[in-house]
Design a binder for these strands. Structure first.
Lengths: 193, 193
DNA sequence: CGCGGGTTTGATGATGCTCAAGCCCGGTGG
DNA sequence: CCACCGGGCTTGAGCATCATCAAACCCGCG
């Protein structure tokens, strides 16, 4: 059980050795450098990434030119513009590498092929969508009911490995505060313990 | 094209007359009175409602005993605890009637049967999930980037028929402010035009 | 060395919350 | 028919949270 992608899939469905090979064959691999933009608004992002190395983020920019991080992906996580990937329509978000990355890529077409070759993978991807929906809903409730400090705690739990290896401003954006406020909050947390 | 449910489905997939009958047969119908609770946290909500008449809401209660409305459903809308329905796990939200309602109900099991009987319905329900995910993501971005007034505008656009026929405090909860603040905001909006 | 992005710090201000009181209005019982 | 009750809405004062703007700082990198 060497491969991170296969480990990830094995969390939800059991595959034989042959099936594992078929699965891997549907993916491409790629390497990207820090700051590479993998998707821009207007483009159709009909593919999904599985991160092996590095960090990738998905974010939007609102009419005030403020960024909002929708999700991070560190090794072992999936990331895509869900709207574009699912509906096949032009994206309204960015996907950007924020730490040199190695990834598996699967296109929508290859995914459909895979469903035919190994039907139980459909179950796997359905669970991914469900989890994404559930996580989004929970994040909305968190934003509605928790303070910035509590949201930061939740972030730290969700992405423990990521916490210390990316620009603070991205974390601030994820929890929904300004970099300035985040800095003050963090120094207050340090003083109080 | 009499039936609201069939009209709704026809937005995404074309059905023959026979197929329409098969579809309708998988649903139950029911009537509920104002204030009836259709689902509570801990219960497994492995079914979905399609509203023909009335209004239903889905909400959670956080640790401060504050309600957060996740969604409303007026005639022509679907509503369910997505987590419970998709994952088959105990819900952590309430589904409550807030205006006497007539609904179609489909259970997860009946849905699976329907997929076998009329495969293209799977496409229809997949689109529902996608839209739900997209709407949630947009709502998160709205909460992160818009003021309460702007979020109220969005609400009014999304649920025009509902705006004037339910308690204000539910609207306040949906846009994420206190009833007091919502009241002040509304009277300010009236003064300014 | 100097530049530039990220972070820190401070002063000020807006947004939205809390608590408390009063009001409106439909329903219910005497 | 009226009195009263209660839930929802309104209004106000004071407050907490978080944003904005501006300046200084830090530090890796050309």
């Amino acid at each position: 059980m060497e491969n991170l992608l296969l480990i990830n899939i094995a969390k939800h469905v059991d595959l034989s050795e042959e099936e594992k090979q078929i699965v891997l064959n549907q993916f491409e691999t790629a390497s990207f450098k820090n700051k590479e933009i993998l998707l821009k608004p207007g483009q159709i992002g009909d593919w999904a990434y599985f991160v092996q190395q590095g960090i990738i983020r998905n974010y939007t920019i609102d009419e005030n030119a403020t960024e909002h991080v929708l999700s991070f992906a560190s090794p072992g996580w999936w990331i895509a513009d869900m709207y574009s990937f699912l509906a096949g329509k032009p994206s309204n978000s960015y996907i950007e590498v924020i730490d040199d990355a190695e990834v598996y890529i699967i296109t929508k077409d290859k995914q459909e092929e895979l469903y035919k070759l190994v039907p139980k993978t459909e179950r796997f991807f359905r669970i991914l969508i469900e989890n994404s929906l559930i996580a989004n809903q929970q994040r909305l409730v968190d934003k509605l009911s928790l303070s910035a400090e509590e949201r930061y705690e939740n972030f730290a739990k969700k992405y423990p490995e990521v916490k210390n290896c990316l620009p603070q401003k991205h974390i601030a954006s994820y929890i929904g505060v300004t970099p300035e406020f985040f800095s003050k909050m963090k120094s207050k947390l340090l003083r109080n313990k």
